[in-house]
Design a protein around this nucleic acid. Structure first.
Lengths: 322, 322
DNA sequence: CTAATCTGTGTATATTTATACACTAGTGAT
DNA sequence: ATCACTAGTGTATAAATATACACAGATTAG
């Protein structure tokens, strides 16, 4: 009957609280009721939708896409960046910036960062990190060996070293090739104390930064400097591999794909990555879309940083097969 | 430069807080930052208008009119009720309901209520009050004497008595006419112990419920049962009186108008009313608009309960002269 | 009509949020 | 380069808000 009288009072309370910014106790005193009652009225105001709270996305942000990715892939966090054009260079630049900001904003003290060094996107991220005081990060651990090609080897080492310097951490390098010529060769290389010490840190990593690679002959060959024979590539694709993180391969459903090559890789295994507290993946671009899809389904990633175009592609078709 | 990255994170925090209903500490843990930072981000989200809170008025309520009246008359609270038609009967019924609800919702324990008995609107309010446990209200004090006409005298007494019974309070009646035949007669009447005891309670009243009357010959005569001579009426109107509360008169600017009649009224003086903690006025209707305007300007009213039509009229022209 | 249940309230208190403070690092002027 | 000033952070704690509890009145079923 007199429900309108009750709603009127609730509306007034909501107005005083939300628009006039008064404290509940103040409102309670003004209206001669207890603070508890005011609290309950405000709750009711929400329920009755007398107060409505809306979030307006600032331009350049895509909460909807992020939400879609979080929900469809069961991801704790997703970051989608605005991008002027759907080109690898533009995408990597933006993802790098966003990744760096996120890292800085959410970095805790005493962390041990693992970084896989073969990704240009990660390089862009490191470019955007501001130097911080020493001690915040304990170690920056290289989670994948360098390249056979000595110059790229250096490149990888530099990435780790630079990130370590910027974060004020001690770098822990993996002075070995990412892919050993053979199983036997790998065992020999693991005999090195320095290498072993670094690899023992893998289980201590609290934050891993990884790139995602697509198995796609041309780029793969370019990237690896012909480490893999065409035979090895076919072996992977035949087994269904669609992409890799630090040279650990998976298919479109996120299942790990193990081939003989796996035994030759000197770096963090997928199982170890899965145990890391926080795994941040940086990747975007049309060519990588399916690889990212598979990577997300491995369940090892906690935060994906990608671009708006890739985000839309990831959401478009989300059935199992591409 | 990377302001968008900051805003993106803020947006995400706002989303988790406002839409997903997560606690700040939970969000802080999720994003590896301190709860304090989350709190600050939420504040910033308000400032940047990333979160917007709107109040939607339920149908039948008029927060805008109430706000207008509060602001234009410097009133702590105003209640505007919906009314199907702009007729006295309809208006009184609705105001009565709303007044009763407000009274019940905001009544504290141990109050002493003063009630002026000549208003039909107050009668309607009392009709809508639900009986409550004894002791919540200490006394219900009649603040204005009855009428010369014995039947109406009874009416007034009954109002006070009924309100007292409903609120579980002890009634304190003023068994004297509202207007004594002369100054001298008044002094005699005040000699009565019972009357004096009630009048001594005037200063203890914590909540006064008053009606507002318009000086308008026909209704006045009808109301008063010809207590006033045409002469007395002219005296009032000549002095600028536009209305009254409990037979205490004021002009359109809210200045108290004192005439010889004032000395014959047996009831609470305006000065005493002004000292009461809370004065709730119930009044509406086209004929009373100017009287209400004046009453509000006396500065003695804390809460006005009126109807939508009168509210709009009150806001329409708000210069000094009608 | 009475018992049982449900609703709403204030008090006391637990939980949650905001902020004072101390400190670090960035910025700009001298 | 140095110093003052600004901006931002986490910790500790004050302030504000939500709720458990006990109780009172309303409502419903028997």
């Amino acid at each position: 009957m007199a429900r309108v009288n009750e709603l009127r009072l609730i509306t007034r309370v909501a107005q005083m609280y939300h628009l006039e910014g008064r404290r509940q106790a103040e409102i309670a005193q003004h209206l001669r009721m207890s603070q508890a009652t005011v609290s309950r009225m405000l709750k009711k105001a929400q329920e009755e939708e007398i107060v409505r709270t809306t979030i307006v996305a600032p331009s350049g942000t895509f909460p909807e896409l992020e939400k879609g990715i979080r929900e469809k892939f069961g991801l704790p966090e997703a970051i989608v960046v605005e991008c002027a054009e759907d080109s690898p260079a533009s995408i990597m630049a933006r993802i790098g910036e966003a990744g760096a900001h996120f890292l800085e904003a959410t970095l805790q003290s005493g962390e041990i960062i693992g970084v896989s060094s073969w990704s240009e996107t990660i390089l862009k991220m490191v470019d955007n990190i501001h130097p911080m005081s020493a001690g915040r990060v304990k170690y920056v651990v290289q989670t994948l060996g360098g390249m056979g090609n000595p110059s790229v080897q250096t490149h990888a080492t530099q990435l780790t070293t630079r990130l370590a310097r910027l974060t004020g951490a001690e770098p822990r390098l993996l002075s070995a090739p990412g892919v050993a010529p053979s199983r036997e060769a790998k065992l020999v290389l693991l005999g090195d104390t320095y290498v072993r010490e670094t690899m023992e840190l893998f289980s201590k990593i609290t934050l891993a930064i990884v790139g995602i690679g697509a198995i796609e002959p041309s780029s793969m060959l370019a990237r690896s400097g012909n480490i893999f024979t065409p035979n090895e590539l076919t072996e992977h694709t035949d087994a269904g591999a669609i992409g890799d993180m630090s040279l650990r391969f998976f298919d479109i459903d996120g299942n790990v794909v193990k081939t003989p090559l796996d035994d030759r890789v000197i770096g963090m295994p997928m199982e170890a990555l899965a145990k890391v507290d926080r795994v941040i993946a940086l990747a975007g671009g049309a060519a990588k879309t399916d690889a990212i899809r598979g990577a997300l389904r491995t369940g090892t990633i906690d935060v994906l940083v990608t671009d708006e175009f890739t985000a839309r592609r990831l959401l478009e078709a989300w059935n199992t097969t591409p």
